[in-house]
Every structure is written in structure tokens, then in C-alpha cells.
Amino acid sequence: MRVEVTEKTPQKLLTKASGFLKGYTHTLNPYIGCAFGCSYCYVRQSPVGLFRKQEWGTWVDVKKDVKEKLAKEMRLLRKKEQPISIFMSSSTDPYQPVEHKEEVTRTQLEVMAEEPPDFLFVQTRSPLVTRDIDILKKLGDRVMVSITIETDLEEVRKRFSPSAPPIPARLKALKILHKEGIPTQVAIAPALPFSEEFALKLKGIVDRVCVDDFTGDGSGGKRTARLGVYEKYETEEKAKWVEGNVQQEVFEVMRTVFPEEQVIQSPDGFFPPKV
């Protein structure tokens, strides 16, 4: 699918967090739009997705001139002695394909390595995040990288998010990050049909597991229903993966491999670790 890429110069980069992300002070989105275009993405039904009048996944705006702007915003917050906890990103993937060339996310991470927030949560589904291990290490325990792996079955991934990175590559990225000592999380969000071996594949490569279902779309599942996602399930999958208590069932599966304190249900699974 061809993706239209344009450039934007934003007035401001950090946005005050609210609603689902109330555990943070700010959100940070290096891009507007997302080339992964996952069928279930809640942003499709948000103002960002609806206002553009273009199909979600076919356009991306690259934010330009971010280095000095972000540094200034960070310094101003510090001058006010305000806490700074950042969720990156709430309405895009910071490591989508255009990041290979544009490096907007890497530039912002470089700024935060010099002007560190109290905590940074990096949410992505892209193995490209491993490129920035050198910077992430500088942030130490101030950062956590959360990689979405909603299923371990490529057939399912291709059905729901054909433009997203392959599952084996994401698992490998988690393994690399974890080995390098970077705090890691797998976000099974939303939980899609997976194999009996899924939990074992995650063992030893993550610090915690976040479990979510479609109720985490910010509207209790109503946005997802409007997207027609349920039609992508096979008939025999619906009883277990649509009609049942998916979040609780997946939570219990993960608890057969991980200790209780490492498995967290959404929304707490997207909040900073408790210390």
C-alpha cells in the first residue's frame, strides 16, 4: 500500500496527558498518522483519524525541527520543577517505516538523554527500536520499552494487521532489548488468537506482561465495533476470543508462566512501574 508522506512543523511537541493516559504528565508523538494501519487501531475512530478524510494507514505527517523545540519544552518544565513522565506514543507508532529515514524519534530520544524526563514509556510494534539501544541505555531505569505482540501466529497477524512487522522479528527485538538490560514489556494488546506456546515464547525476554482486549480502545469496545474488526475472526474463534472474558482468560494463561507481579491488566499495564 502506498503511503503519502508530508512534513509538518508543529508549534508544540509535548501534550498534556489525559483520560486513559492519566498516569503520565505528557504524551509525545513524533508523527501524525501511522503506516502500519492496524485494523483495530482506536485512533481510526479518534479526531486524528477521522479529520483527515483519508484511509488510516495511507498517510503520515513527519514532524520537522523537533530538536531545539523539545529541548526548550523540557527545560521549561524542569525550570518550573514539574514532574515529567512521557508516553511515546499515544496516536502513532514512533518506529514506523518512515523513521528509518527521518529519525524523528531518535532525535527526540537524543534530546531526552540530555534533558531526561522522570520516566519515558516507549510503545511500539517495530523491531526498529533496537537501533536506538545506545540512547535507551543512557536513560537507565527511567525508560521502559513496550512492544506490542498481540499474537504469536503470523496467520492471525496478517489477517488483522498485514502491514505491521512480522511477529518473529518483534520477539527477537524484545530478546535483544532485554539482554541489553533495557526494561522491557510485551503488550498483548489487543489479545488475538494465539498458540499454546505463546507464554513460553515470552519467558525470559520481558520484565512484565500487559494484557488488554478491545475494551482498551478508550470507549469500552465501541470504537472497535464500529471498525468491523469482529468480522475478521474465524467462526470457531468467536466464542473464546470475542464473546468471553478475553482479558481475564489471557491473564490466567500468562500466569502459568510468569509470577503474578509480572502480569498486569490494562490500563495499569501501560502505566509507569511502581517503585
Score class of each variant (00 low, 15 high):
237 E>C: 04
261 E>K: 15
238 K>Q: 12
40 Y>F: 15
85 S>R: 14
8 K>R: 15
268 D>T: 07
51 F>D: 13
101 K>I: 13
238 K>C: 05
186 V>C: 08
187 A>Q: 12
22 K>D: 14
97 P>D: 08
45 Q>N: 13
59 W>L: 09
112 M>E: 03
149 I>M: 13
179 K>E: 15
63 K>L: 13
144 M>V: 15
259 P>Y: 09
62 V>S: 08
123 Q>W: 01
63 K>A: 06
123 Q>F: 12
236 E>C: 01
112 M>V: 06
263 V>L: 05
155 E>M: 06
234 E>D: 13
212 D>P: 03
170 R>T: 05
164 A>F: 01
214 F>K: 05
165 P>T: 01
105 T>V: 09
186 V>A: 10
11 Q>E: 15
212 D>H: 00
247 Q>S: 12
193 P>T: 10
100 H>N: 12
269 G>I: 04
219 S>F: 03
61 D>G: 11
159 R>I: 02
2 R>A: 07
16 K>M: 07
244 G>A: 15
227 L>K: 10
199 A>D: 11
35 A>K: 04
171 L>D: 12
141 D>I: 02
99 E>Q: 08
224 T>S: 14
53 K>I: 00
46 S>Q: 11
80 K>I: 00
235 T>N: 11
136 L>P: 05
202 L>A: 08
271 F>A: 13
218 G>P: 12
135 I>K: 14
150 E>T: 15
248 Q>V: 06
243 E>Y: 14
177 L>G: 03
21 L>W: 14
249 E>N: 13
192 L>D: 09
70 L>T: 03
